[in-house]
Design a protein around this nucleic acid. Structure first.
Lengths: 166, 166
DNA sequence: TATCAACAATTGAACCCTCAACTGAGTCGC
DNA sequence: GCGACTCAGTTGAGGGTTCAATTGTTGATA
């Protein structure tokens, strides 16, 4: 917004270094997420967000999780997750089950087939993350990235946000 | 993919520190982009990506740019940009014009109305970026973020990618 | 136990993006 | 100047996400 900057009063605009950092982060992330999504779509026929769902399920005892908890962990809205589980269920990679302790609840369960698909997808996904992120950064930069990410998360945790969204 | 990791051979998995950095970056970015998109949608009725289009146009002499150049600068596919300009044109914020030097080409031109909308949208957007990113980081971290971003971009520049995509 | 607010999850419409196919214009070789 | 190839941009279908509304359940209170 350089050209508009001087024309609006009362706003603390970004300094040059801040602007450069923001744009570098923004563009890097757009390119990267695009590349990850495309690769996942081509290799496994699902978007990257769905892969993350399968990952989270695979990391639990029993390969299942409450919908709402899964939504939190994948940083997804309830609605989005519900639609996503629909698709994954159609493919037979995930199943729904009633929650034994709360009749409002549903469990998402990763099937054998889903686990197989995940195991199939993981190596090239990790390779991609390595190639485009991890292996391009020094160990120091990797620590910096973790710190920066955690700082940003701390200011945006769902508990800080306003209302329910979906 | 911790649980699957040991079961698949030949893949160099992420170390703990690498995994943490990657997840922190991923989650921070999901939360942040979500928040930015939501704010822009509520305040100005457009997604963040459309705002970036207006910003790029506002930064040029004459407030216009070739579609293909605009696509490169906004890290967008030609198709995506074309659809986006459709929407912005419907709202009267952007106009299309024939390119004088190449009859295949089109210019996207930011209208007065579009510029006004942008000027309206910019302050709270910048405030958001400040609040959730810039002001949470030290000057040193801001330099680190720029370096990290640029390293990632260097490995993903369109020239490195394979074919045309839209 | 009746009532009412909060919660868990789903639904459908509207919107955005991707992909592949297409139109029309420039370019190169002959 | 003709054909084949490339380039700029658009189009429409299909799929993902968001938002607001809805269903059914739980918990608190009187």
């Amino acid at each position: 917004m350089t050209t508009v900057a001087p024309s609006v009063a009362g706003t603390r605009w970004l300094e040059n270094e801040e602007q450069e950092a923001w744009r570098a982060y923004l563009e890097a992330t757009l390119l990267l997420f695009d590349a990850l999504d495309r690769q996942m779509q081509q290799d496994s026929g699902m978007p990257h967000a769905y892969y993350e769902i399968l990952v989270r399920l695979s990391e639990t005892e029993g390969h299942n999780m409450r919908m709402s908890e899964l939504a939190v962990q994948t940083r997804s809205s309830r609605s989005r997750l519900s639609h996503a589980i629909d698709r994954l269920q159609e493919r037979g990679w995930v199943e729904r089950a009633d929650c034994p302790t709360d009749r409002r609840g549903q469990l998402a369960h990763l099937t054998e087939k889903g686990f197989a698909v995940l195991s199939e997808a993981a190596p090239s996904h990790v390779a991609m993350v390595r190639k485009h992120v991890i292996d391009r950064l020094s160990p120091e930069q990797i620590r910096h990235l973790a710190d920066i990410g955690n700082s940003i998360i701390a200011g945006l945790e769902p508990t800080c946000a306003s209302a329910d969204r979906g």
